[in-house]
C-alpha cells in the first residue's frame, strides 16, 4: 500500500515537473521570439534609413553640382 502511494506520488511529481518545464520553455520561447522580432524590426528600419541616404547621395551629378537635391534629411531620426 505504501509502495503504491509512493509510486503515485512519484508519478504525479514527475508529471507535474514535466508540465511545468514544458510551460516554462514555451513561455521563454514566446518572449524570445517577441524580442527578436522587435530587434530585427528596429535593425530593418535603420538599414532602410541608411539605404535611403545612400540612394540620394548616388544621385549627385559631378557636372551639375546638385548638392541641394541629394542631401535629404530624415526628420524621423531623433538625434
Amino acid at each position: 500500500m505504501l509502495q503504491l502511494i509512493f509510486t503515485i506520488v512519484i508519478l504525479f511529481s514527475i508529471l507535474g515537473i514535466l508540465i511545468w518545464a514544458y510551460t516554462e520553455n514555451r513561455e521563454l520561447g514566446k518572449t524570445h521570439t517577441r524580442n527578436i522580432s522587435a530587434l530585427e524590426n528596429e535593425i530593418a528600419i535603420n538599414y532602410g534609413q541608411v539605404n535611403f541616404r545612400k540612394q540620394h547621395l548616388e544621385k549627385y551629378q559631378f557636372m551639375q553640382y546638385n548638392l541641394q537635391e541629394v542631401l535629404v534629411p530624415q526628420p524621423k531620426i531623433k538625434l
Partner: peptide, 22 residues
C-alpha cells in the same frame, strides 16, 4: 538577442552619425 542588440546599436550609431553629418 545580444548579437542582435549589438548589431542594432552599431547600425543605429552609424545611421545617427551619418544623419548628423548630413
Amino acid at each position: 538577442e545580444s548579437e542582435l542588440r549589438t548589431a542594432l546599436a552599431k547600425i543605429e550609431t552609424q545611421n545617427k552619425l551619418q544623419e548628423q553629418r548630413l
